[in-house]
Amino acid sequence: MSKPELWVIAERRLDHIEPTTQQLITKARDLAGNSFKTVVILLEATADHLEDELTPYGPDEIRVVRDDRFPTATDAEHADALQQLVETYHPNGILFGATITGRSIAPRLQAKLQTGLTADALGLRYDGETLIAVKPSYGDNIMCEITIPERRPQMVTVRPNTFVAEEAAGTAEVTTTTVTFHPVDRLQVTAATPVVNTATTVGDASRVVALGRGAASAAMVNHATQLAEKLGGRIGVSRPLTDQDRFTHDDQIGQSGNTIHPELIINFGISGAVQFLVGMQDAKTIVAVNSDPDAPIFDVADYGYVGDAQTFMTALLAQFN
């Protein structure tokens, strides 16, 4: 008997693949072991070759469906195409990125298939053929393990940047298949424009200087900018600092901001609330500077300095110069 399929639904972002797709391929390979076949589902226009951005990550198969209407298709049209594929191939599991797109299409597909969908998972593992998804709730204060014991496919949306994409050996078989495109008349995407200034976000930086409420002064921000430059990194902030004009949600680390995996993060004046920690606790090296010796940030830090953030920052910058 052939192996049951574990699917990753590829997501497009303008003319490229959205990075969560590659992260999910790496995770799917890891979950699949020798028991499942990893298949990426890619809906693209006839002239597109987005599969080239997927092959290096080594799924077993990339199954491409081409139609010039896909790049601007609505959620309902995507869900309809995916339903046809599910009914042909009967996958065991389907992973979507918990992006706005993924979180909009997946529940419509779920409703068509009358199966279960776990939202925004932070962890995944198989127990036999049962996929166990770890899902935060109550603002990441509680973790739940959720399964879909009886129905198939088992559907999950996975939080972006939860897993790290890794290129893998092995040659993905690229196949093509077809579906019938059923246009929905009552909804049109009339424009799609790139939002500027997202070329580098805190999520891409390998070194991060993170500022919290205890390091929010203009002088501190100025010094942190210098330190970030010297490290070749970027500033990130905890949520309270997004109230400053200088920072936006794109700079925020944490549950409702960016999940990051830098080589180094130096946290100044951040207490270490669980909603912040979930966004950065996978960093390779964690440094914390806080005047409160009992701040929870020290529990997850490799190096810690108890004292005033500004004073330490000044001393650190002096020695860099």
């Binding site: 972002r13 303008l14 959205e18 609505t74 992006t99 706005i100 797109t101 972006p160 008349d185 009552r186 909804l187 049109q188 995407v189 009339t190 424009a191 799609a192 424009t193 790139p194 939002v195 997202t198």
Partner: peptide, 12 residues
């Protein structure tokens, strides 16, 4: 607002 795209949609 998608992650880095702004879409305009018209629905009847």
């Amino acid at each position: 607002l998608l992650e880095d795209t702004k879409q305009t949609l018209v629905a009847q």
